[in-house]
C-alpha cells in the first residue's frame, strides 16, 4: 500500500507508473483453519489405515511402506495449501484444492490404487486378449434371436419411458405444473427413481416377476429399462421446460387457455426437439444397458454373453462383444441421421 502511495507522489514529478493490480492476499486465518482440516483428515486416515503393506502411491523410484502413506498425504495437502496461499488463490479455491486432494487420497486408498502389478499380471491378460482378438466369427449369427430381443426391449422401453417421462417432466417443472407442491413431490420421487442404478432395477424386477430362467426375462428387462429411462427423460426434459421461452406461455395464458391447453400448445412445441433427441439418446443407452443387464438374468444378448463367459468360451464372448460395438455404432449413426433429419 505504502509503495503505491510513494509511486503516486513521486510519479507526479517524474513518470506516471501505475503498478499492475495484484490479487489481494487471502486471509491467513482461514488458511490456518484449512491446515487444521488437513490435519483432521490425516488423523482420520491414520486411524483407518490398512495395516497391510499395500502400495498406494507408487512413485516409481522408491518403495514406500503403508504406515507412511497418511504422512505423505498430509505433506501433499499442506504443500498444496502453501502453493495456493503463495499463488493468492482465494480461500474457497484453497478449500476446493484441499477437498480434491483428500477425496483422491481416500478414493485411491479405498480401491488400493497401484499400477506396479501390471507387468507381473500381464500374463493373465494375454491369453484372454488373444482370444478376444481372434473371435469366433461363425458364432455371431447364431445369437440373432437374442439380438432381436435386445433391440425390441430397447424400443419398447424407450417409447413407453419417453411417454411417461414427458408427463412426469410436465408435472415436475414449475413452469408447467399445476402447483408448487406437485412439482416438488414429483421432483423428489424422480430423484429417488434416478438414484437407483439400472442394474438395481433389473435385479428388483427379476426378483419380482422372475428372470430368464422362468422365461420372463424380457418383461423384467423392459420394466427395468423403463424405470431407468423415466428417470433420465423426466430430469432432462423438466430442465428443458424450465428454460423455455415464456412468451408463448404468457400468450396462451392471456388467451384463456387452461393448463392442459397451455402445456400442449405453448410448451410442447418448444421442447419437442429436445424431447426427440433425449429419446434417441435414451435408446442408445438402452442398447448398451440391455446388453449389460443380461448378466443379472434379464433376457437379450447379455444373457447369451454371460452363458459363454461362464463356460470360459472367450472366442464366443469376443464375437458377441464385437457385434455389440458394431450395433452401438450403427445405432449411433442412425440416431445422428434422425436427429439431422428432424431437428
Amino acid at each position: 500500500m505504502s509503495t503505491t502511495a510513494d509511486a503516486t507522489t513521486r510519479g507526479s514529478a517524474t513518470l506516471e507508473v501505475t503498478p499492475r493490480p495484484e490479487a489481494p492476499r487471502p486471509s491467513g486465518l482461514v488458511y490456518l483453519g484449512l491446515a487444521g482440516l488437513a490435519v483432521l483428515a490425516f488423523i482420520l486416515f491414520w486411524a483407518t489405515r490398512d495395516s497391510g503393506d499395500i502400495l498406494l502411491i507408487p512413485l516409481g523410484f522408491v518403495t514406500l511402506w503403508a504406515p507412511l502413506y497418511p504422512v505423505i498425504g498430509l505433506a501433499v495437502m499442506l504443500l498444496t495449501l502453501l502453493v495456493c496461499y503463495r499463488a493468492r488463490i482465494g480461500t474457497m479455491g484453497g478449500f476446493g484444492a484441499l477437498a480434491f486432494i483428500t477425496m483422491s487420497y481416500w478414493a485411491g486408498s479405498t480401491v488400493n490404487f497401484t499400477l506396479l502389478e501390471i507387468p507381473s499380471r500381464w500374463s493373465n491378460v494375454e491369453p484372454r486378449l488373444r482370444a478376444f482378438l481372434d473371435p469366433n466369427w461363425s458364432y455371431i449369427w447364431t445369437v440373432r434371436d437374442q439380438w432381436l430381443i435386445t433391440i425390441s426391449m430397447a424400443v419398447v422401453a424407450t417409447l413407453i419411458g419417453c411417454a411417461i417421462g414427458l408427463v412426469l417432466a410436465m408435472l415436475a417443472s414449475p413452469v408447467s405444473s399445476p402447483n408448487k407442491g406437485v412439482s416438488q413431490a414429483i421432483k423428489a420421487v424422480n430423484s429417488v427413481v434416478r438414484s437407483i442404478p439400472d442394474v438395481g432395477w433389473a435385479l428388483l424386477f427379476v426378483a419380482f416377476i422372475g428372470g430368464t430362467a422362468h422365461g420372463l426375462g424380457p418383461m423384467a428387462g423392459v420394466l427395468a429399462l423403463l424405470m431407468f429411462n423415466i428417470g433420465i427423460v423426466a430430469k432432462l426434459l423438466s430442465e428443458t421446460i424450465d428454460s423455455v421461452n415464456p412468451g408463448p406461455v404468457e400468450a396462451a395464458d392471456a388467451a384463456g387457455a387452461n393448463l392442459t391447453q397451455r402445456n400442449r400448445l405453448a410448451i410442447l412445441p418448444q421442447v419437442l426437439p429436445g424431447f426427440v433427441s433425449y429419446g434417441l439418446y435414451v435408446f442408445e443407452l438402452n442398447i448398451r444397458a440391455s446388453a449389460a443387464l443380461g448378466i443379472v438374468g434379464v433376457g437379450g444378448i447379455g444373457s447369451a454373453m454371460m452363458l459363454q463367459l461362464n463356460r470360459f468360451a472367450f472366442e464366443n464372448v469376443a464375437a458377441i462383444l464385437i457385434a455389440l460395438i458394431l450395433v452401438v455404432l450403427l445405432v449411433d449413426m442412425f440416431s445422428m441421421y434422425i436427429r439431422r433429419k428432424l431437428l
Binding site: 426391449m153 419398447v156 433376457g299
Partner: peptide, 20 residues
C-alpha cells in the same frame, strides 16, 4: 407399428404384469 412389432419381438409375457 415399430412399437407393436417390438412388443412381439421381445416375446414378453404380458400376463406377468398381473402378478406384479
Amino acid at each position: 407399428i415399430l412399437f407393436i412389432a417390438a412388443i412381439y419381438g421381445t416375446g414378453m409375457d404380458v400376463r406377468a404384469l398381473l402378478d406384479l
